[in-house]
């Protein structure tokens, strides 16, 4: 009477699913909090924002067209941002890519002091006070880092603190291959 074994089989299947998910979470290959960006491989949303240092000067994404660049979302209120700051400085130095800093919903004076204290990795630091640009980029928590290709497509996105290891693993191959994921 095979049908009497159905309930047991169903639970074994369920257990398999759970075990699979747990193993992947344990390995770090599945993060239930991470939301994969729908922008990957699509044209980057662009921006047009005042700079942090001189609010009168507006910088648009067109200024970076024609070469790859990074967009890094941060804020002085974000603890993880502080944790990734040194990695960001190193990446800026070694990769030669311009990094656009998107200072998200932040206090201007505190942000200026923060960069003065920790060093400024950004080619341009832009203030997104009302959070509209962040919404366009699908940002849901700082820090987030986007790699935009020379032809203006989003190649890669990292959510959470960046490190050199993550840079080597996730971003460097994209730069070499250039292809969309």
């Amino acid at each position: 009477m095979w049908r009497y074994f159905l309930p047991a089989a169903a639970f074994i299947a369920l257990g398999g699913l759970f075990a699979f998910a747990l193993v992947r979470i344990g390995q770090g290959s599945l993060d239930i909090r991470e939301i994969k960006s729908p922008l990957l491989g699509k044209p980057a949303p662009g921006f047009r924002l005042p700079t942090l240092a001189e609010p009168g000067r507006v910088v648009a994404s067109s200024a970076f067209a024609g070469r790859p660049y990074l967009v890094n979302v941060w804020g002085t209120w974000c603890a993880e941002c502080r944790a990734e700051h040194s990695a960001l400085l190193a990446i800026g130095r070694t990769s030669g890519l311009p990094i656009v800093g998107l200072d998200w919903k932040d206090d201007r004076q505190e942000a200026i002091a923060y960069l003065r204290e920790l060093g400024n990795p950004y080619a341009e630091t832009l203030s997104d006070n009302d959070g509209r640009t962040a919404i366009d980029w699908g940002v849901y928590g700082a820090p987030e880092t986007f790699l935009v290709s020379a032809d203006g497509h989003v190649l890669e996105k990292h959510i959470g603190a960046l490190s050199l290891a993550i840079w080597q693993k996730k971003f460097a191959p994209r730069l070499a291959g250039g292809g969309a994921p």
């Binding site: 009477m1 009497y4 074994f5 309930p7 257990g15 759970f18 075990a19």
Partner: peptide
């Protein structure tokens, strides 16, 4: 907990099937 869960549930359901 998953191991516990499977032990109790699959064990009892197998007994049930028999």
């Amino acid at each position: 907990i998953l191991a516990l869960l499977l032990f109790f549930i699959v064990g009892s359901l197998t007994l049930y099937a028999v």
